Simulated scan of single mutants.
Amino acid sequence: MAIKRMDHVGVAVHDLKAAIAFFEELGMEHVGGSPVSGDWVDSVNGLQDVRLEMAMLRTPDGHSQLELMQFENPPASTAEPSAPANTIGYRSVMFAVDDIHDTVARLEPHGGELIGEITQFESIFLLCYLRGPSGVIVALAEELDGKN
């Protein structure tokens, strides 16, 4: 049996409103959200008395979604909120963008910080890692199409 599709990527954040604003500025569409609680969410998370607010955002092409979650109970935690990009586990989600410099500039007022530099990979891409709300790492890629 093969998988049908990748449905979405889920990311826990400390400040849901800030995270929504960050990803909307990136170009994603906020398509819904709700409070979540109950036996089913306790069971699937292996936790007790889970209460969270979630928001779903969709990419402009309509194919990919991001689920942002702010846990009210139990409080979200992390051993290292600013872990480097080579930390084991989920570290980044990459987005293809039209103009990497403009995108970085637009995300800075929303808490976006370059981790390293915007770097050219051969004559194919400009690439960078940007840390956003709650330490989430976003990778950006601009196809060069022979521009540089």
Rank of each mutant, 00 (worst) to 15 (best):
Y90N: 05
V97H: 05
T119S: 10
G111M: 05
L66A: 04
F71P: 08
T119F: 07
H30N: 09
A105C: 01
R5V: 01
G38H: 12
P84C: 07
R131L: 12
V50E: 10
I100P: 02
D145E: 12
N73I: 03
A21S: 15
P74V: 09
N45M: 15
S82W: 12
G116S: 01
S134M: 06
P84V: 07
G62A: 07
L57W: 00
F121T: 12
S64K: 04
L47D: 09
M6W: 12
R131E: 13
F95E: 01
L26H: 01
A18C: 06
L127Q: 08
S134H: 05
V13R: 07
I100N: 03
A2E: 11
G38I: 11
A85P: 09
E108R: 14
L52K: 08
A55C: 01
M1N: 10
M54C: 09
L130T: 04
E72L: 15
L126T: 00
S37M: 09
D7A: 08
T103C: 10
G112W: 04
E72F: 14
P84L: 04
F71Q: 11
P75N: 11
E108W: 01
N73E: 13
L130Q: 02
M56R: 03
I115L: 13
V31P: 00
I137F: 00
D99T: 03
N148F: 09
M69L: 15
L47Q: 14
S92R: 12
V36L: 13
F71V: 07
S37F: 08
S92G: 06
E122H: 11
A141P: 01
K17L: 11
T103I: 02
M69C: 11
E67C: 01
G33R: 00
G116F: 00
E108T: 15
I118C: 05
